[in-house]
């Protein structure tokens, strides 16, 4: 509980001596810096701190979240920018005094920003209970899978999956907390499985389309329900189940399901080659990188996300499918 909330009009905290000194150096000119985005803060800080130590600079993190390397030797700044680029983290090399206006704007914005409030306490307690008891329509979605063909969208399948973010507190939705996201997704897949076992299929299902349904990460396949009437239905397995492919493939075949996969990312596209991942669709979160380089087997790839014009164009060019309404 907040006892004495800082009032919004409280003045900005005084600048530290180190920041003031770095700003003075930037104003004097002849030094460089780097501006990095707000992703992967720890890694970015580590790389920038290294450059700051080598080039006598300072790392400044305004409340907006991005990271600035200030007042450092040009060589050290260029090396840090190169390292960030190799890590595929967006970064911009700064040259002072040329980029002073940019820095001044960020300083002014930071001074005007609301005082940082402590993050709301995480509330993971009761996660399992919420996954079981919250209304299905808040946690589960029926997504649509389709592809552009001859300028027209063609429906391919429907994908019944969970929305882990609907279950998690804000602070646990970031990439750094992948384990909680995975746990939440697993709990929701268990709920989907239980519904399927009870013969409950999602409202809004189109009889002519194959249904893809998320499966939980379980080493041994559970008793599987028979699929609803129709052709081409598939169980969507997390990639982590690949080492358990044999028992799962056997159980799915016996119950009348095909296989699909979820959780693909650029680093693992080699798996899409040959028959390492038997089955149909390979679902992945739509990212610019995957859309630009969809790997050796784009026809099996389905990128989940909002269908932006860029994504549509790339889907038409490379032939990967799109899925919206539910993530992968």
């Amino acid at each position: 509980m907040q006892i004495t909330a800082p009032s919004p009009e409280s003045p900005a905290p005084p600048r530290s001596a180190a920041l003031a000194e770095a700003l003075r150096r930037c104003e004097a000119g002849g030094c460089a810096g780097v501006l990095a985005g707000d992703g992967l803060p720890r890694l970015v800080s580590a790389l920038l701190e290294e450059a700051a130590n080598a080039g006598d600079g300072l790392v400044w993190r305004p409340r907006a979240g991005e990271a600035w390397l200030l007042g450092t030797a040009p060589g050290a700044a260029a090396r840090a920018a190169r390292h960030l680029e190799r890590m595929e983290i967006p970064a911009r090399l700064l040259d002072f005094p040329r980029d002073l206006p940019l820095l001044d704007a960020a300083l002014a914005e930071d001074a005007a920003a609301a005082p940082a409030r402590p993050p709301s306490p995480p509330a993971l307690g009761g996660l399992e209970e919420r996954a079981r008891s919250r209304p299905a329509q808040e946690l589960l979605r029926l997504g649509t899978m389709w592809r552009m063909e001859g300028g027209q969208p063609r429906l391919l399948a429907q994908y019944w999956g969970g929305i882990p973010d609907a279950l998690l507190p804000d602070t646990f939705r970031t990439g750094a907390e992948a384990d909680w996201s995975g746990h939440a997704a697993n709990l929701l897949a268990q709920r989907l499985l239980a519904m399927a076992q009870a013969g409950q299929w999602p409202a809004g299902r189109k009889a002519g389309l194959p249904l893809l349904i998320d499966m939980p990460w379980l080493e041994e396949p559970p008793p599987l329900p028979a699929p609803p009437p129709g052709e081409g239905h598939a169980l969507v397995l997390p990639l982590a189940l690949l080492p358990r492919l044999l028992p799962w493939a056997e159980a799915a075949r016996a119950a009348g399901w095909g296989l699909a996969w979820r959780g693909m990312a650029p680093a693992l596209l080699g798996l899409a080659e040959g028959d390492r991942l038997p089955g149909g669709f390979i679902l992945a979160e739509a990212t610019a990188k995957l859309a630009a380089e969809p790997g050796p087997n784009p026809a099996r790839l389905a990128l989940c996300g909002a269908p932006t014009p860029d994504l549509l164009a790339r889907s038409a060019r490379h032939g990967f499918a799109l899925c919206h309404g539910v993530g992968a």
Partner: peptide, 21 residues
């Protein structure tokens, strides 16, 4: 391990790049 790579390929991509760097 193979399973750890498969379970979190995004982090694996970053880890691999960082180890290479």
């Amino acid at each position: 391990t193979l399973t750890d790579i498969l379970a979190d390929p995004e982090a694996f991509g970053m880890a691999l790049r960082f180890a290479g760097l």
